[in-house]
């Protein structure tokens, strides 16, 4: 008797579940209305764009939001809602869900990991909300890329490698007592692309036989960690007289350069080419003799501005989002950093 009651209750629960409020998750959610989402027909009036960023506490990304808000102000009646995703792929999904839930009209996202791309795109497209990737490209589960604004990681690395090769050849160092110190967060594919791009270009310019050995150092992309790791590397390689330094960002290269200089390596024996220029510029602004010889300036302001401008055009005028917008980069050094636009805080 008792078993039959339990079975009946279970059957009733199953029927209830299949009838009300149950989903396998494979159905597409009903798209937001065009008024809400700024879908195919375009939308007028106030609009909100969610700008979700990884590592939102880094200066580049702070600049990116500043550029986004500048574009929003120019467009008028546009609100930018930002969120810092850190390095948290799960938070990326949560914030996209939250943005969709509150009815934003567009989403611009810098993903913490490109592997979440398919799920992020699926959520946005199911809701009928246009989505754009910034800085790091993403693809859906069929391999189709989302509209992208930003930089090409390999290309940035190539430019760093090209500048390092130019300075290395000008210095006339012997590859036997020179080493390349490449530092980056090795579980971030976007960082790996940059340092691999740098080495490829460097090698293609100076030749494989004249390319010094490369020492790879894993860091967490912070200056202090890069400094700690480089100090140990210097101790373990006391035979090296000249150092070439590159990495994922300015945090890595300035941290390594500081460690080398603290360890007694003269600035003249260091060729450090950074990526970002926002930290390397501090030595230049102070007029210091430094191993930070150059840095590729990438403007977060430009990327944020271009991304929001394109998104507003999509929402208001139904102008298709450009498949790829590659922002310009500039090689900065002590002589030109202000003229290329580096703002040294």
């Amino acid at each position: 008797m008792r078993i039959s009651k339990i079975a009946a209750a279970g059957l009733a629960a199953a029927l209830l579940a299949t009838t009300f409020g149950c989903s396998s998750g494979q159905e597409s959610a009903p798209p937001a209305t065009s008024a809400d989402a700024g879908g195919d027909g375009g939308a007028s009036g106030a609009i909100e764009i969610a700008f979700l960023q990884k590592q939102g506490d880094q200066q580049y990304f702070v600049d990116e939001i500043a550029g986004a808000k500048k574009a929003a102000d120019e467009a008028g009646d546009v609100t930018i809602t930002s969120a810092d995703l850190g390095d948290d792929a799960n938070k990326a999904i949560s914030e996209v869900e939250a943005a969709i839930a509150r009815g934003v009209q567009g989403i611009i996202i810098v993903v913490p990991d490109q592997a979440v791309g398919p799920n992020v795109i699926k959520l946005a497209t199911d809701a009928g909300i246009p989505i754009m990737a910034a800085d790091d490209g993403i693809v859906d589960d069929a391999g189709n890329a989302a509209p992208f604004t930003g930089f090409n990681g390999t290309d940035m690395g190539n430019k760093v490698g090209e500048k390092a090769a130019e300075l290395y050849q000008a210095a006339g160092w012997d590859p036997a007592d020179t080493a390349i110190l490449a530092s980056w967060k090795q579980d971030l594919s976007v960082c790996t692309d940059r340092v691999e791009g740098a080495l490829d270009k460097f090698t293609s310019i100076v030749g494989a036989d004249k390319t010094p050995r490369e020492i790879q150092v894993g860091t967490d992309n912070t200056p202090t960690n890069a400094q700690d790791k480089a100090t140990a590397t210097l101790t373990a390689n006391s035979d090296v007289k000249h150092w070439i330094v590159w990495g994922c960002n300015d945090e890595n290269t300035t941290g390594v350069t500081t460690a080398l200089q603290n360890g007694g390596v003269a600035p003249a024996d260091i060729i450090s080419v950074g990526l970002g220029a926002y930290l390397a510029c501090k030595d230049w602004a102070a007029g210091q003799d430094t191993g930070n010889k150059a840095a590729l300036y990438i403007s977060g302001i430009d990327v944020g501005y271009a991304a929001v401008k394109a998104m507003v055009a999509k929402i208001r005028d139904n102008t298709p989002l450009p498949p790829e917008t590659i922002a310009a980069t500039y090689m900065a050094d002590a002589s030109n950093y202000e003229s290329v636009g580096v703002v040294c805080t």
């Binding site: 579940a17 149950c22 989903s23 396998s24 998750g25 494979q26």
Partner: peptide, 9 residues
């Protein structure tokens, strides 16, 4: 997918 996006009641 069910765990990611599915729902019950």
């Amino acid at each position: 997918i069910f765990f990611a996006r599915g729902s019950v009641l």
